[in-house]
């Protein structure tokens, strides 16, 4: 890569409090465009919190205070002129527990477009095409093409989670955030999701929180190790696992923390 490096996500001295408990401390990171960045660290270290900052879903909780800067695609998302719906359109999120909406598979995929576009500006044929394309991207089309009218909450968990990823795609997001997307799935489903992530890699900037070291090694390009609200180390996945710079990182990947 010879072009100057582009960053999709940059934070600058980011601090976050839940009431008066500080969950993030001076987090300054830069995540490269088009890469998969893994977020690892022991339970409670702030991975979910950091991830949820990137599209400001954190603000659903009334008790959150944030200081510092977050730039997504070069734009500070705390600027007053930022439109939350527009920003969230560009930064999609996949949650730890699959959370498809209690509507049909088809309408789950179309949900994003329906809320972001004028009423009736979507043609049926165009919509059909979008649904097929999105489901194909996550390897669900063959399984679900005859069940598009089925209620999404009745699918198997793996299918639900893939659907949750697929429903982001029609909005053409630049960033996809995933919070332990495989934690409620079995080993085989986990592999299927990983395969799907690698299929999407390069076209989207992805940030993946994971508990699973092996998964971080398999799918991520760069890795970020967090401990008690701080970022300890951020480097290429290879070097983080083989030659960690910080002794705490070494301890963690060798399994000396929980």
């Amino acid at each position: 890569m010879s072009a100057p490096e582009k960053f999709s996500i940059e934070t600058e001295k980011l601090n976050l409090w839940y009431d008066d408990f500080q969950a993030l401390m001076n987090v300054s990171v830069k995540m490269k465009d088009g890469l998969i960045t893994g977020l690892i660290g022991p339970s409670g270290c702030g991975k979910t919190t950091l991830l949820r900052c990137f599209n400001r879903v954190n603000e659903r909780y009334g008790n959150v205070t944030t200081t510092g800067q977050i730039k997504i695609l070069g734009k500070n998302i705390y600027d007053p002129d930022v439109s939350l719906p527009e920003m969230r359109k560009a930064v999609g999120m996949v949650f730890q527990r699959p959370n498809p909406l209690p509507i049909s598979v088809y309408e789950n995929i179309m949900f994003g477009l329906r809320i972001h576009s004028e009423r009736a500006s979507l043609k049926k044929s165009a919509a059909d095409e979008i649904v097929e394309k999105s489901l194909t991207e996550v390897f669900l089309w063959d399984d679900l093409k005859d069940k598009l009218k089925k209620k999404a909450t009745a699918l198997q968990l793996e299918q639900q989670q893939k659907l949750c990823i697929a429903r982001l795609l029609p909005l053409k997001p630049q960033v996809i955030l995933m919070d332990e997307p495989c934690s409620s799935l079995d080993a085989e489903s986990t592999r299927a999701i990983e395969e799907m992530m690698l299929n999407l890699a390069g076209r989207y900037t992805m940030v993946i929180v994971t508990h699973n070291m092996a998964q971080a090694r398999r799918v991520s390009d760069e890795c970020l190790f967090m401990l008690m609200g701080e970022v300890i180390e951020h480097s290429r996945t290879q070097s983080l696992f083989l030659t960690p710079r910080d002794s705490r990182t070494a301890d963690y990947i060798e399994g000396r923390y929980g």
Partner: peptide, 20 residues
Amino acid sequence: SYREAAEALGATRWQIIYRV
């Protein structure tokens, strides 16, 4: 989780009420 899912997709409060 339904509200959260819709909100993370950029739905406004009214859209969440009306559509979810």
